[in-house]
Protein backbone atom coordinates (compact mmCIF):
# COMPACT_ATOMS: atom_id res chain seq x y z
CA UNK A 1 0.00 0.00 0.00
CA UNK A 2 1.40 3.34 -0.91
CA UNK A 3 0.48 6.35 1.15
CA UNK A 4 -2.15 8.50 -0.44
CA UNK A 5 -2.64 12.22 -0.07
CA UNK A 6 -6.10 11.67 1.35
CA UNK A 7 -6.68 11.85 5.04
CA UNK A 8 -4.72 8.92 6.33
CA UNK A 9 -6.16 6.98 9.20
CA UNK A 10 -3.57 5.77 11.68
CA UNK A 11 -2.26 2.34 10.96
CA UNK A 12 -3.48 0.67 14.10
CA UNK A 13 -1.24 -2.30 13.50
CA UNK A 14 -3.58 -5.08 14.44
CA UNK A 15 -1.40 -8.12 14.60
CA UNK A 16 -2.61 -10.93 12.36
CA UNK A 17 -3.78 -13.95 14.29
CA UNK A 18 -1.22 -16.66 13.63
CA UNK A 19 -2.19 -19.57 15.83
CA UNK A 20 -2.91 -23.09 14.66
CA UNK A 21 -6.64 -22.56 15.05
CA UNK A 22 -6.51 -19.41 12.92
CA UNK A 23 -5.26 -21.16 9.82
CA UNK A 24 -7.79 -21.58 7.01
CA UNK A 25 -7.65 -24.93 5.34
CA UNK A 26 -8.97 -25.44 1.81
CA UNK A 27 -8.03 -27.73 -1.08
CA UNK A 28 -5.33 -25.35 -2.32
CA UNK A 29 -3.33 -25.66 0.86
CA UNK A 30 -4.58 -29.01 2.16
CA UNK A 31 -1.59 -30.84 0.79
CA UNK A 32 0.85 -28.46 2.44
CA UNK A 33 -1.04 -28.87 5.70
CA UNK A 34 -0.90 -32.65 5.30
CA UNK A 35 2.89 -32.50 4.88
CA UNK A 36 3.18 -30.42 8.03
CA UNK A 37 0.93 -32.89 9.83
CA UNK A 38 3.05 -35.75 8.60
CA UNK A 39 6.17 -34.37 10.25
CA UNK A 40 8.62 -35.82 11.31
CA UNK A 41 7.96 -38.40 8.62
CA UNK A 42 9.20 -36.36 5.68
CA UNK A 43 11.58 -39.02 4.33
CA UNK A 44 14.18 -36.27 4.05
CA UNK A 45 16.07 -33.84 6.21
CA UNK A 46 14.17 -30.87 4.83
CA UNK A 47 10.86 -29.96 3.27
CA UNK A 48 10.44 -27.00 0.96
CA UNK A 49 7.15 -25.15 1.25
CA UNK A 50 6.56 -22.73 -1.58
CA UNK A 51 3.78 -20.57 -2.91
CA UNK A 52 2.85 -17.04 -3.92
CA UNK A 53 3.10 -14.03 -1.62
CA UNK A 54 0.38 -13.90 1.00
CA UNK A 55 -0.49 -17.58 0.62
CA UNK A 56 -0.03 -18.25 4.32
CA UNK A 57 3.34 -19.99 4.06
CA UNK A 58 4.84 -18.23 7.05
CA UNK A 59 1.71 -18.83 9.06
CA UNK A 60 1.82 -22.55 8.38
CA UNK A 61 5.55 -22.56 9.04
CA UNK A 62 5.10 -20.92 12.41
CA UNK A 63 2.52 -23.54 13.33
CA UNK A 64 5.14 -26.15 12.53
CA UNK A 65 7.83 -24.28 14.43
CA UNK A 66 5.61 -24.24 17.48
CA UNK A 67 4.93 -27.96 17.24
CA UNK A 68 8.48 -28.98 16.59
CA UNK A 69 10.19 -26.42 18.77
CA UNK A 70 12.16 -25.29 15.75
CA UNK A 71 14.48 -22.32 15.83
CA UNK A 72 14.61 -19.78 13.05
CA UNK A 73 17.79 -19.94 11.05
CA UNK A 74 19.41 -18.31 8.09
CA UNK A 75 22.51 -19.95 6.64
CA UNK A 76 25.03 -17.31 5.63
CA UNK A 77 28.72 -16.64 5.41
CA UNK A 78 29.14 -15.34 8.93
CA UNK A 79 26.90 -17.92 10.59
CA UNK A 80 28.45 -20.56 12.85
CA UNK A 81 26.76 -23.55 11.24
CA UNK A 82 28.26 -25.98 13.69
CA UNK A 83 26.41 -24.26 16.52
CA UNK A 84 23.30 -23.72 14.42
CA UNK A 85 22.82 -27.41 13.72
CA UNK A 86 23.14 -29.49 16.88
CA UNK A 87 22.16 -33.18 16.94
CA UNK A 88 18.50 -33.48 16.01
CA UNK A 89 18.20 -29.77 15.14
CA UNK A 90 14.84 -28.41 14.02
CA UNK A 91 15.21 -25.33 11.87
CA UNK A 92 12.81 -22.99 10.19
CA UNK A 93 14.44 -21.24 7.26
CA UNK A 94 12.07 -18.62 5.89
CA UNK A 95 13.37 -16.74 2.86
CA UNK A 96 10.42 -14.32 3.01
CA UNK A 97 10.42 -12.04 -0.01
CA UNK A 98 13.89 -13.13 -1.12
CA UNK A 99 13.53 -15.46 -4.05
CA UNK A 100 16.61 -17.61 -3.39
CA UNK A 101 19.82 -17.57 -1.33
CA UNK A 102 22.49 -15.12 -2.46
CA UNK A 103 25.52 -16.64 -4.21
CA UNK A 104 27.83 -16.10 -1.24
CA UNK A 105 25.48 -18.14 0.94
CA UNK A 106 25.50 -21.17 -1.32
CA UNK A 107 28.43 -22.93 0.34
CA UNK A 108 26.92 -22.41 3.83
CA UNK A 109 23.61 -23.76 2.51
CA UNK A 110 25.38 -26.82 1.17
CA UNK A 111 27.15 -27.35 4.45
CA UNK A 112 23.89 -26.86 6.33
CA UNK A 113 22.07 -29.53 4.32
CA UNK A 114 24.95 -31.94 4.89
CA UNK A 115 24.97 -31.19 8.62
CA UNK A 116 21.23 -31.71 8.87
CA UNK A 117 21.56 -35.09 7.26
CA UNK A 118 24.52 -36.04 9.35
CA UNK A 119 23.00 -34.91 12.65
CA UNK A 120 19.51 -36.24 11.98
CA UNK A 121 18.07 -32.76 11.97
CA UNK A 122 15.18 -31.43 9.95
CA UNK A 123 14.40 -28.08 8.42
CA UNK A 124 11.37 -26.47 6.90
CA UNK A 125 12.43 -24.18 4.08
CA UNK A 126 9.90 -21.53 3.08
CA UNK A 127 10.22 -19.70 -0.23
CA UNK A 128 8.18 -18.28 -3.06
CA UNK A 129 9.74 -20.44 -5.76
CA UNK A 130 10.27 -24.21 -5.57
CA UNK A 131 13.88 -24.93 -4.61
CA UNK A 132 14.44 -26.92 -7.80
CA UNK A 133 14.11 -23.63 -9.68
CA UNK A 134 16.41 -21.47 -7.61
CA UNK A 135 19.24 -20.20 -9.80
CA UNK A 136 21.90 -21.92 -7.73
CA UNK A 137 25.45 -22.03 -9.11
CA UNK A 138 26.94 -24.68 -6.88
CA UNK A 139 25.98 -27.94 -8.60
CA UNK A 140 26.19 -30.01 -5.41
CA UNK A 141 23.75 -27.68 -3.70
CA UNK A 142 21.43 -27.50 -6.69
CA UNK A 143 21.16 -31.26 -6.84
CA UNK A 144 20.51 -31.57 -3.10
CA UNK A 145 17.82 -28.93 -3.27
CA UNK A 146 16.14 -30.53 -6.25
CA UNK A 147 16.00 -33.86 -4.47
CA UNK A 148 14.15 -32.46 -1.44
CA UNK A 149 10.42 -32.99 -1.09
CA UNK A 150 8.51 -29.87 -2.05
CA UNK A 151 4.95 -28.87 -1.47
CA UNK A 152 3.20 -25.94 -2.97
CA UNK A 153 0.33 -23.79 -1.83
CA UNK A 154 -1.53 -23.19 -5.07
CA UNK A 155 -3.39 -19.96 -5.94
CA UNK A 156 -6.57 -19.47 -3.92
CA UNK A 157 -9.92 -21.01 -4.81
CA UNK A 158 -13.18 -19.14 -4.22
CA UNK A 159 -13.77 -20.57 -0.76
CA UNK A 160 -10.35 -19.46 0.39
CA UNK A 161 -10.62 -16.07 -1.30
CA UNK A 162 -13.74 -15.18 0.65
CA UNK A 163 -12.39 -16.60 3.87
CA UNK A 164 -9.13 -14.71 3.40
CA UNK A 165 -10.78 -11.41 2.71
CA UNK A 166 -12.86 -11.73 5.85
CA UNK A 167 -9.86 -12.84 7.86
CA UNK A 168 -7.63 -10.03 6.66
CA UNK A 169 -10.34 -7.57 7.60
CA UNK A 170 -10.84 -9.28 10.94
CA UNK A 171 -7.10 -8.93 11.57
CA UNK A 172 -7.47 -5.21 10.85
CA UNK A 173 -10.36 -5.04 13.27
CA UNK A 174 -13.06 -4.63 10.62
CA UNK A 175 -16.00 -6.82 9.74
CA UNK A 176 -17.64 -7.56 6.43
CA UNK A 177 -21.28 -8.09 5.65
CA UNK A 178 -21.97 -11.29 3.66
CA UNK A 179 -23.83 -9.26 1.05
CA UNK A 180 -20.77 -7.08 0.44
CA UNK A 181 -18.62 -10.18 0.29
CA UNK A 182 -20.92 -11.67 -2.35
CA UNK A 183 -20.60 -8.45 -4.32
CA UNK A 184 -16.81 -8.34 -4.09
CA UNK A 185 -15.97 -11.95 -4.74
CA UNK A 186 -16.56 -12.17 -8.49
CA UNK A 187 -15.08 -8.72 -9.09
CA UNK A 188 -11.61 -9.03 -7.66
CA UNK A 189 -8.30 -10.39 -8.82
CA UNK A 190 -7.93 -13.91 -7.53
CA UNK A 191 -4.53 -13.81 -5.90
CA UNK A 192 -3.34 -13.83 -2.31
CA UNK A 193 -1.54 -10.54 -2.61
CA UNK A 194 -4.51 -8.76 -4.19
CA UNK A 195 -6.79 -9.92 -1.39
CA UNK A 196 -4.49 -8.56 1.30
CA UNK A 197 -4.22 -5.26 -0.59
CA UNK A 198 -7.95 -5.02 -1.04
CA UNK A 199 -8.61 -5.66 2.64
CA UNK A 200 -6.29 -2.81 3.55
CA UNK A 201 -7.93 -0.52 1.02
CA UNK A 202 -11.41 -1.34 2.21
CA UNK A 203 -10.41 -0.80 5.79
CA UNK A 204 -8.70 2.52 5.05
CA UNK A 205 -11.70 3.72 3.07
CA UNK A 206 -14.05 2.74 5.85
CA UNK A 207 -11.90 4.45 8.46
CA UNK A 208 -11.57 7.62 6.36
CA UNK A 209 -15.30 7.73 5.80
CA UNK A 210 -15.95 6.74 9.40
CA UNK A 211 -18.48 4.23 8.16
CA UNK A 212 -18.69 0.46 8.13
CA UNK A 213 -17.81 -1.30 4.86
CA UNK A 214 -21.01 -0.92 2.91
CA UNK A 215 -21.88 -1.99 -0.58
CA UNK A 216 -21.53 1.60 -1.77
CA UNK A 217 -18.10 1.92 -0.20
CA UNK A 218 -16.94 -1.39 -1.68
CA UNK A 219 -18.13 -0.28 -5.09
CA UNK A 220 -16.17 2.93 -4.72
CA UNK A 221 -12.98 1.14 -3.72
CA UNK A 222 -13.20 -1.19 -6.71
CA UNK A 223 -13.66 1.71 -9.08
CA UNK A 224 -10.43 3.39 -8.02
CA UNK A 225 -8.20 3.77 -11.06
CA UNK A 226 -5.50 1.51 -9.67
CA UNK A 227 -7.90 -1.19 -8.63
CA UNK A 228 -7.81 -4.95 -8.76
CA UNK A 229 -6.21 -5.25 -12.17
CA UNK A 230 -2.82 -3.86 -11.24
CA UNK A 231 -2.25 -5.39 -7.88
CA UNK A 232 0.21 -8.16 -8.32
Amino acid sequence: MTASSLQLPLALGFRPALGEEDFLITPCNALAVAWIDRWPDWSASALVLNGPAGAGKSHLASVWAQRSGATRARPGVSVDLDALVPQGARLLIDLHAESHPEPAAEAPWFHLLNLLRERKGQALIVAREPAARWPVRLPDLASRLAALPQVEISPPDDALLSALLVKHLADLGASLDPAVLRYLLPRIERSFAAIAGLATELNQAALSAQKPITLALARKVLQEPDDAGKRE
Binding site: E20, F23, I25, T26, P27, A30, V33, I36
Partner: peptide
Protein backbone atom coordinates in the same frame (compact mmCIF):
# COMPACT_ATOMS: atom_id res chain seq x y z
CA UNK B 1 -7.91 -26.74 16.68
CA UNK B 2 -6.52 -29.42 14.49
CA UNK B 3 -4.94 -29.04 11.11
CA UNK B 4 -7.35 -31.02 9.09
CA UNK B 5 -8.35 -30.43 5.50
CA UNK B 6 -11.79 -29.12 4.67
CA UNK B 7 -12.45 -31.66 2.01
CA UNK B 8 -13.62 -34.77 3.80
CA UNK B 9 -12.08 -37.99 2.61
CA UNK B 10 -9.18 -36.25 0.94
Amino acid sequence: PKLKPLAPGL
